[in-house]
Amino acid sequence: MKTVSKLAVSVMAAMTIISNARSADDADDAAAQANNPLANMTAFNMQNYYIGRQTGTSQDANEFWLRYAQPFSISRTNWLLRASLPVNTFPVGNHHETGMGDLNIFTAYLIDVGNPAVSFGFGPQLTAPTATNKDVGSEKWSAGLVNVLFDASSRRFQYGYLLSWQSSFAGSGHREDDNVVAFQPFGMHQLGKGTYLRAAPIWEYNLKNNGYSVPLGIGIGQVIKREKTVYNFFIEPQFSVASKGPGQPDWQIFMGLNLQFLK
């Protein structure tokens, strides 16, 4: 009986070790995919940029973004739809105006590159003038293209980029047209147990007026998996290394909570 009891304990211990190993693997996989903008799962993000000082005004500003992503299929092709809506607080004279900004939607066609750890997609984007007042939006319709890459081949380090271009084609004749290229390189270094270091600045260049912004920064994040939901908290201070034109951030704090809903 003692031998059987010891054997049972040994089997249970082995099962516990295997279960813990699988849980660790699941946690590592969740952490590796938590920042994938093309992940094959529904996602909802709440992200905030607190801009401590803007060029030209030396005043602060804030952009709070709500983002929803939904994968879908057309025939045998796979796509991802992402909709982003900001709530902006911008300085206007001696006060600040707050309101809903312009809605941006893009759809990315996902290409099979032969490596399931690598996500690659491109497609069209559209920005609609949905702002509640002229001080927090562009009053312009814009359209363009996006291209996204995310490489999670390594559980230790993931990287990629989001490249976009859009140009205004309709809207208020009293507002300046936009023709903007934006490049967001990003890298995530996993420290273990869901904690990671991150960098995800957005570099913008306006082809219409030659204005640009080049921030750099490094932050920290924490990924927590609970049943079928992945919670991704992060904060990332960023500082401008080059800029031209008014309204560019001298420094800002990028923070947020990203939610992914597993199938």
Rank of each mutant, 00 (worst) to 15 (best):
L81D: 04
Q47L: 11
A43Q: 12
K140P: 06
L110W: 02
L126P: 09
D112L: 06
A43Y: 00
R82Y: 02
P116Q: 11
L80P: 03
L81Y: 01
Y49A: 09
N115K: 07
F90G: 03
F64E: 02
V92P: 01
A128D: 02
P71A: 13
Q54A: 12
S138H: 09
A131T: 08
T57R: 12
P116E: 12
L103N: 05
W65C: 03
G93L: 08
D60G: 15
W65Q: 15
H95K: 11
N88T: 09
M46V: 15
T132Y: 01
F120A: 08
K134R: 15
T132Q: 10
F90N: 15
S75Y: 03
T42Y: 06
N40P: 12
S138M: 10
V118T: 13
T55K: 09
N62F: 06
Q54L: 15
N78F: 05
Y109S: 02
P91C: 04
G121C: 07
Q59A: 12
N104T: 11
Y109T: 01
L81W: 02
Q125D: 01
N133L: 01
N115V: 10
F64I: 10
T98G: 08
A117M: 09
I105V: 12
A128P: 08
F120I: 09
G99S: 14
P116S: 13
D102F: 05
K140F: 00
A43C: 06
Y109N: 07
Q70I: 14
P86Q: 03
S75N: 14
V113Q: 05
V87T: 14
M41H: 05
A131M: 06
Y109V: 06
L66W: 10
E139L: 11
R53C: 06
A128E: 01
V136D: 01
N40L: 10
F106E: 02
H96C: 08
P71I: 10
I111S: 05
Q70N: 14
T132R: 04
M41E: 05
P86E: 00
P86F: 00
G123V: 03
G137A: 15
I105D: 04
L81R: 03
P86W: 02
L66T: 14
F64G: 12
N133C: 15
T132V: 14
A61R: 04
P116F: 06
S119G: 04
T132K: 13
N115L: 05
T130H: 11
T55W: 04
G101Y: 01
P129R: 05
G121Y: 00
F72H: 03
T42W: 07
G52W: 00
T132H: 07
R76I: 07
